[in-house]
């Protein structure tokens, strides 16, 4: 399969802080990639570097096989970008924004724009300034999809939208995905949305892409173990894939990535009275994973294989 997005050792510093650290990101054609991370983890800077809005200190970005730093305008027609907050010219009316944007493209699906505007009951005469966040997001999405791009890169498109409007936006996104061969990368803070929409997720922690695997795969590999001890619980356990642990008197709670035989042996060696293994939903798994001891987080980057549930722990960073 071809990589539609590809970065090579992408690095960016702000002052002395390394915001993005040697990022190698690959997104294949047709994938819907959920890009996650806490605030300040480097998601936004990464997306801006993907779009050439921020210059990397070192490294390269390729979109649709072409270097972003020297991309010809023709290629940019095939890629849509929605920045955080859906920036548009507020003094324009919806009609003016459509006319302005249309002027740049050789391919423009007029019917699609009309459909979206009609569906959300947006009049062309309305000023963008007067729109709600949700309406603005819909206009911005309509402008982005009208040139029928192959690749869409959206920076937290549902930020600041209420539940109902967010659902509308996701519905539109699902419609876009129905078009075969379309690739989407989007960042989000709402894990439920990501689970619905994304095939694959990447999680950045402190500028490093720590997780890059199919969505279900991640949530299925992060497990919470509750160990019950007859006496006081041991302080800590040393086993590969440990993200975090809490000592609660006679109980020890562990967050593990990729629970397997080796880990089971290590845990059983502590001789607990009982072991309870708790599955987590995506949000819980994300929270437990990202608040772990950052420098020692186990990385996992899995190759695409839908029914392969084994976890390859690629070692400690």
């Amino acid at each position: 399969m071809t990589d539609v997005i590809r970065t090579f050792r992408l690095t960016k510093h702000y002052d002395t802080r390394r915001v993005v650290d040697c990022l190698n990101l690959q997104v294949q054609r047709g994938q819907v990639y959920g890009f996650l991370g806490r605030n300040g983890a480097g998601k936004s800077t990464t997306i801006k570097m993907l779009m050439g809005m921020v210059q990397p200190d070192s490294g390269e970005v390729e979109l649709l096989g072409e270097k972003v730093s020297a991309m010809c305008p023709k290629t940019r027609e095939r890629i849509a970008y929605i920045a955080e907050g859906h920036p548009l010219y507020n003094w324009m009316t919806i009609g003016e924004a459509v006319r302005f944007t249309r002027a740049f493209y050789s391919n423009w699906n007029h019917t699609l724009v009309e459909q979206i505007l009609d569906h959300f009951e947006l009049s062309r005469k309305q000023k963008l300034r007067r729109l709600s966040n949700g309406q603005r997001a819909q206009v911005s999405l309509a402008l982005a999809v009208a040139p029928e791009p192959e690749l869409l890169i959206l920076d937290d498109p549902t930020l600041g939208l209420d539940t109902v409007v967010r659902r509308d936006f996701l519905e539109s996104l699902i419609q876009i995905i129905h078009r075969k061969g379309r690739t989407i990368l989007f960042s989000s803070h709402i894990l439920g949305d990501v689970e619905r929409v994304a095939d694959r997720i990447g999680i950045m922690v402190d500028g490093v892409l720590r997780v890059d695997c199919p969505t279900d795969h991640f949530r299925e590999s992060v497990k919470k173990l509750v160990l019950d001890f007859p006496g006081p619980a041991p302080e800590a356990v040393d086993c590969p894939g440990l993200v975090n642990s809490w000592n609660l008197g006679s109980q020890l709670e562990l967050i593990l990535v990729g629970y397997d035989e080796a880990q089971r042996t290590a845990v059983e060696a502590l001789q607990p009275r009982s072991i309870e293994i708790i599955d987590l939903n995506l949000e819980e798994a994300f929270i437990e994973y990202t608040r772990g001891r950052k420098r020692s987080l186990p990385l996992f980057a899995m190759e695409e294989s839908r029914h392969d549930q084994s976890i390859g722990d690629q070692g400690i960073a």
Binding site: V32, R167, L170, E171, I174, Q175, I177, H178, R196, V197, A198, D199
Partner: peptide, 8 residues
């Protein structure tokens, strides 16, 4: 996929 708003 459309009704449930989930990835096809």
């Amino acid at each position: 996929s459309r009704d449930l708003v989930v990835n096809p």
